[in-house]
Design a protein around this nucleic acid. Structure first.
Ligand code: ZN
Ligand code: ZN
Length: 737
DNA sequence: AGCACGCCGACT
DNA sequence: GTCGGCGTGCTC
């Protein structure tokens, strides 16, 4: 009988049908063609690669199949991750191919592991001396004698020391007078962290209570979702460590996600000290081949713990028992290219599919998480007191409107200047924090703090020349008048000072202080970021000025004052999460003060001190903030009470982009039922690398409903091929820039 | 995405 | 008459 096997293959071509084709498996490949392997297959006139989804004995009728050419190297994607890829493509409306590529981890080939090359002179001292004498080329002779004096140099060092060019060294190697030895530097970062033999610290009663719940679920193999809501310094990490230990002793593996591995230095050290080489760190500093090695250690079960950024959620753990998502509210968990997944959501889906326990942690939960705690989907565990028993820092909000009326033109209020001077006198350290500059012109009344918002969307309107204000969500437009609608003042500003200007002002105001600035410009050189932080920690800098990047993970005991120069700029972002982002940022910044023995102090400068995000963050009152914010989300129809899908159109000709976006909008309005179609409107970054960008936002009651509606529109809608307009879909967008 | 097929305008 | 524009459809 016909024993032929057929494989369903997703080809690496953006084909309309989703790219799934049926191929015959040649007898020689029956053993190796299994679900999850990559294969080379013929497609039309060419050979393309693809992923095998499934292998079976039957073939859909009425098609002439061709044979798989060969199986590519690399381990197959495990079944659970293949299922997860299917989930990803339907949850995030991406192609199955993009989902499979994400799930398949780092490529097995493509780049060598890093090697260090050492150069040695050939032979004993006599032979080398003879060779130097015989050499006709003086540069080569010089290089060889330099190397003889100091054997074991790198190529760069030899070139530098001998003052010769690369060709000189190459000639010596070619002649066999110099031996090149390449040593693979298979150094895992943090490899040299010693296991800490001391027993883990005792848990506080709160930590104990939280851990025992998680422990019970792990021991029982009950796939629960826990939300660990713990204030700054309440010891969430120790709870994660205990939970991971519990999973390991139950014979299962654990994945621990952090927003940015480069900023999780302390946490990596703690995990390495506790679990040693059982931890695989998927560090972004690894070259692809090294990432692949780490992945294989996980697959083989050598590593029981995976610690990494969002892509670590796809680690090929065979026996997953626990997934931890630390700082679950962080926007860094959102992948901003297809598949545009949120690692927290993927983690929950994976935990469900593989029967693992999930632990999400934050001091300032995403409002989606608050809603899920309230609905009972997450079990909430609270850590409400600091492990060290220190009080939260005292926060003082300075009203910039009063400063404005009093004629202050400086970025520093009089109060902040006085506090900084006091700290400098006492030889304590100061952190000055500047919110990132607004990306577009936004309108804020300098006199009363009023912000003009969209009546439909509650989103801050942005100004466009010569006299238009518009909403980036629904494209509501209004005429701009340089006159505040609330107080009538004519000084509507769009301010946006850079760190450079802050530094200049600070030098003028505090001439006796040692001041440093940390931003993209000053930390462009590799390692200078760490060097600057080290200098600050050693007390060689009195005032450190920086943007968002210094708010994360900075732990300097000498800092007793944190100043936020402009608390409001995040409130002006065209984003329904603007208030949430502001609250999170201010809360986090405040946590940077008073981490040492001296009490901390925080000064927040704001044009809208009465705004609830500013007010409640000053009191570190998350629950009051959440209550207010949830009410607004409900009123204006935003997550967690609604779901959004954003469709971005981009191309080199704006008219064509607008035409396609408008056509999509019309098709969408035709098809959808209860969902709203907002726009098209220009994206906040309306032109990026020569591409004009417009977007449409679909809004609906449930995620399922909006996704279904969007999927339906997408099946009937195609950008005209000649238009050169590309379309990309973002389900649950985090940033709409 | 590629590539072929096909149907109209302006060239040797 | 044919060379070539790109709109349309298909690839297991
Ligand atoms: Zn005003
Ligand atoms: Zn609007």
């Amino acid at each position: 009988m016909d024993e032929r096997k057929y494989a369903q293959v997703v080809v690496e071509r953006p084909v309309r049908n989703g790219g799934v084709f049926t191929y015959a498996v040649p007898p020689a490949l029956v053993e190796t063609v299994v679900p999850g392997v990559r294969v080379a297959v013929p497609l039309g006139a060419q050979v393309v690669t693809g992923f095998v989804l499934d292998v079976s004995a039957d073939c859909p009728p009425g098609i002439k199949t061709r044979e798989i050419i060969r199986v590519l190297e690399g381990k197959p994607i495990p079944a659970a991750l293949l299922t997860l890829a299917g989930w990803l493509s339907s949850r995030y409306l991406c192609t199955l191919l993009d989902a499979l590529a994400a799930v398949s981890g780092p490529a097995p080939k493509g780049g060598r592991r890093r090697e260090t090359e050492w150069l040695w002179p050939r032979g004993d001292a006599g032979e080398i001396l003879a060779a130097i004498e015989e050499l006709k080329a003086p540069a080569q002779a010089r290089a060889l004698s330099v190397l003889a004096a100091q054997p074991g140099m790198t190529r760069q060092a030899l070139m530098r020391e001998a003052g010769v060019s690369a060709s000189v060294v190459a000639a010596l190697i070619r002649k066999g007078l110099v031996i090149s030895e390449k040593v693979s530097r298979r150094r895992e970062p943090y490899e040299d962290v010693a296991l800490d033999p001391t027993p883990p610290p005792l848990l506080t009663p709160e930590q104990e209570g939280a851990f025992s719940e998680i422990d019970k679920a792990i021991a029982a193999g009950r796939p629960e979702i826990f939300f660990l809501h713990g204030v700054t310094g309440s010891g969430k990490t120790e709870v994660y460590l205990r939970a991971v230990a519990a999973a390991l002793s139950a014979g299962r593996q654990a994945i621990v996600l952090v927003p940015e591995i480069a900023l999780a230095h302390q946490m990596v050290l703690q995990f390495k000290a506790r679990f040693g080489n059982q931890v695989a760190v998927t560090h972004s500093a690894l070259v692809p081949a090294e990432r692949h090695d780490a992945w294989e250690r996980v697959r083989a079960g050598e590593a029981g713990v995976v610690l990494g950024a969002r892509s670590a959620v796809f680690a090929p753990t065979a026996r997953l028992g626990l997934i931890v998502v630390d700082e679950e509210h962080e926007p860094a968990y959102k992948q901003e290219q297809s598949p545009r997944y949120h690692a927290r959501e993927v983690a929950l889906a994976r935990a469900r599919l593989e029967g693992a326990v999930a632990v999400l942690g934050s001091a300032t939960p995403a409002l989606e998480s608050v809603a899920r705690c309230l609905s009972g989907r997450y079990r909430q565990l609270r850590l409400s007191s600091r492990v060290d028993g220190r009080p939260m820092p005292a926060v003082r909000v300075v009203d910039l409107r009063e400063e404005f009326r009093a004629g202050t033109v400086s970025l520093f209020s009089n109060f902040l200047v006085a506090r900084v001077r006091e700290k400098i006198r006492q030889r304590e350290q100061v952190l000055l924090f500047l919110n990132r500059k607004g990306f577009a012109a936004f309108v804020l009344c300098q006199a009363c703090g009023h912000v003009i918002r969209c009546p439909n969307c509650d989103i801050a309107l942005s100004y466009h020349r010569p006299d238009t204000l518009f909403c980036h969500y629904c494209y509501y437009r209004a005429r701009y008048r340089p006159r505040c609608p609330r107080c009538g003042d004519e000084r509507l500003g769009w301010f946006g000072a850079g760190t450079q200007r802050v530094e200049e002002e600070a030098r003028a105001l505090f001439p006796e202080a040692r001041i440093a600035r940390m931003d993209a410009e000053t930390t462009a050189r590799r390692g200078s970021h760490a060097a600057l932080l080290d200098a600050f920690k050693r007390g060689e800098i009195d005032i450190l000025i920086g943007t968002q990047m210094i708010a994360k993970g900075l732990d300097v005991p000498g800092v007793t004052l944190v100043g936020v120069l402009n608390a409001d700029t995040t409130l002006l972002l065209p984003d329904f999460r603007a208030a949430e982002r502001t609250f999170q940022l201010l809360y986090q910044v405040a946590g940077r003060a008073g981490r040492g023995p001296l009490p901390g102090e925080v000064v927040i400068q704001s044009h809208c001190p009465e705004h609830y995000a500013v007010r409640y963050s000053a009191r570190q009152d998350f629950f009051s903030f959440a209550r207010r914010e949830l009410a607004l989300r409900q009123r204006f129809g935003y997550p967690p009470y609604a779901a959004l899908v954003r469709v971005v159109f981009s191309g080199e000709t704006e008219e064509k982009v607008v035409r396609e976006a408008t056509a999509f909008g019309a098709a969408a309005r035709e098809i959808v039922g209860g969902e709203e179609v907002l726009g098209p409107a220009p994206c906040p970054f309306g032109k990026l690398k020569g591409f004009y960008r417009w977007h449409i936002i679909l809004k609906g009651k449930s995620g399922r409903a909006v996704r279904d509606a969007c999927r339906e529109v997408l099946t009937s809608f195609l950008c005209r091929r000649g238009s050169g307009v590309r379309l990309s879909v973002d389900v649950d967008p985090v940033s709409i820039l």
